[in-house]
Simulated assay, not measured.
Amino acid sequence: MGQVSTLIVVLAIIFGTAMVQAAVGFNAVLLPVRLEEYGYGKSLIGICLSMEVAAVVLISKYITRIIARLGIFGALALATGIRVGVLFLVASSRNWVLWCVCVFFFGMNTNIMLISLQTWINTIPMTRFKGLAIGSFSSALSLGTASGPVMVHLAGIDGGARPFHVNMAIVAFTLLPFLLLAKFIPKIPAGPKLRLGFVLRMAKIAMFSSLVGGVTFYGLPAFLTLYGMMNGLSVERASYLISLFMLGSITLGLGVCALSDFLNRTVVIVVCVFVGVLCAVYLPLAIYTYPVALGLLFVWGGAAGGIYGTGLAIVGDMFRKEDQVSANVAYSLMDCLGGVIGVNLIGFSMDFEGSDGIVYVIILAALVYFIYCLSKVRVD
């Protein structure tokens, strides 16, 4: 494959990744708002939304086998079809159980697509700019999620199935560049057996940081739109809270990760968690001044992105090449497990404590993390 072809393929993967996540960002606004319109409480909304992340936890062990059997293009095509199908089902139903099942399958197939694309870009031979390509891939994840609320605003969210149909079109369009570039997609052999238990034992603090980071990174965006609406913002303005959080993850988060190359990475994570606590404490005040709230969430997103990226760097340094697949799967698994816990706890907390319940959960998670880190400090 020549340099021009390589560049085209890499750009297509990055674009496709952003589009995959754009549908996720679209749902982050549409699903909780529509469920609340149907009369469901925050607890039930939280359980339903957590199904998307729970699917990632349950499928992680089998995903390499699925991709090896179907091939990258087969996995992308099948996952796209299922994502379109579940959006079609929820568009015409108010049944909470059906929504939970559909959200579960949407999350499962989103993860299959992302791992397929990540595998594809990692197999492309690049003598130069490999780091830039992988970094752009990571940024596309957050950029796609950040663009979702903007697309919701353009599509309209008031009643009817139209916004669901728009999101179905986004999902279907994602497959187009891969159809055109199918001949460049490599075949993937079955991978080695995962050693999740081993890497979890060997990197306890890094894995726990991923768990705590997942509480914020998944839990906060899931309820930010409803949080803003509960504090007097319109749906449009409330949805942009998610966009600024994700943009902070892209920009400030990358800066934090770069800075961690020159500092103690564990200390960097602790500082990021502390910054997240400060943002959580001041959010109930900042929400009444919209520009301040946007700025605070931008910083908060940077701290959350810094936790994930820096923890991933720790894992990369700790394990040999043979265990990197297991280490990365375990790290993502803990991140998603934190997301399941966070989304559910925030939903229950907001039902019983009002909008500030989201703050209490974030602070509690940080407190548990600080206690755990202190318990690991050796006193001579």
Rank of each mutant, 00 (worst) to 15 (best):
G148K: 06
V166Y: 03
V101I: 15
S136M: 15
V171S: 05
A68I: 09
F184E: 14
G74P: 10
Y62R: 10
I112M: 12
L179F: 12
R162T: 07
R65E: 00
A77P: 00
R83G: 06
G107C: 09
S92F: 15
F178Y: 12
L132S: 14
Y62P: 02
S147G: 02
L78N: 08
S116G: 11
C100W: 01
G148D: 03
F106A: 05
P189K: 06
S93W: 08
W120I: 02
A190E: 15
S147N: 01
I66T: 04
A146Q: 13
V150N: 01
I66A: 11
A77D: 07
S139E: 00
L154I: 11
I59Q: 06
Y62A: 12
L117H: 13
V84S: 07
P163K: 02
V56H: 00
I66Y: 05
I124S: 01
I63C: 08
L117C: 07
M51C: 13
P177C: 09
T123C: 09
T127L: 04
I82T: 11
N95Y: 03
S60K: 12
G148H: 04
W120D: 04
I157A: 09
P149R: 15
I63L: 12
V86F: 06
P177N: 11
L176D: 05
V171G: 04
L143D: 00
V57Q: 11
C102A: 15
F178H: 09
G144C: 10
P149F: 12
N111C: 01
P149V: 14
